[in-house]
Design a protein around this nucleic acid. Structure first.
Lengths: 118, 118
DNA sequence: ACCTATTTGTCCGTATGTATG
DNA sequence: CCATACATACGGACAAATAGG
């Protein structure tokens, strides 16, 4: 996988790590559904702290690039969906509340995609 | 400011802290430009670790609600009408739940636009 | 201009919890 | 049951930016 970090660089280590993964994905060397090495392995290989790798992974998750699950590891985002009871509940309530305020589904979708709240 | 955390609760401490701040803002008790107490103060007052508070603050920053600067502290950026408090709350929870399930914002937007629930 | 205290940012370490396989 | 792997929380240390004297 040949990632690398430079402790003397300007960018923080976790950002360098995340950038490495992004580059791999952009270059097509990491396909959907593929599993990333465990944070522990990466930490040992690059001689950085486990938390630093986990932070990079969580950043990538927040960006929607990978999926993290306990005991399973990090997987390049593919298709899902598992059990989503809570999500369904929230979606229903959100639609209700949005309508009450006169917002359309399109408005909602826009809000979410723009990553902001009204 | 009367925030509170419950170590035995289901939600993680940093999420509880962030929720407290969101509630303050939604209720209009935290206006734009106002400064939040320093992470150190909050940590001491609630008897939680400094890093836990910083994580909550960074989460709120990622949500665009506050601005963080070294030596300066946390300042409220956003301002939202009280009548939209519930919608904001639901949106935030929905994003949290979706992320937990590995869903992206794009997935969420699609779900809403397609008018279905997973 | 200088120094100091404050405050967040990052990194490391350790421990424990929880879901997965 | 057991090993793996991420999640959270605690702690310590130092760096960097800011504010104030």
């Amino acid at each position: 996988m040949l990632w690398q970090v430079d402790p003397s660089a300007d960018a923080p280590l976790y950002e360098q790590l995340a950038a490495s993964v992004r580059a791999e994905m952009a270059a097509g060397r990491l396909a959907r559904g593929e599993r990333l090495p465990s944070a522990k392995e990466v930490a040992a290989a690059l001689d950085v702290n486990l938390h630093t790798v986990l932070r990079a992974y969580q950043l990538l998750r927040d960006e929607g690039l990978i999926e993290l699950r306990r005991g399973r590891g990090a997987v390049v985002v593919a298709e899902r969906p598992p059990e989503q009871a809570r999500l369904t509940e929230l979606l229903t309530e959100l639609r209700y509340e949005a309508r009450r305020l006169g917002l359309t589904d399109h408005d909602l979708a826009t809000l979410i995609l723009e990553g902001r709240t009204p």
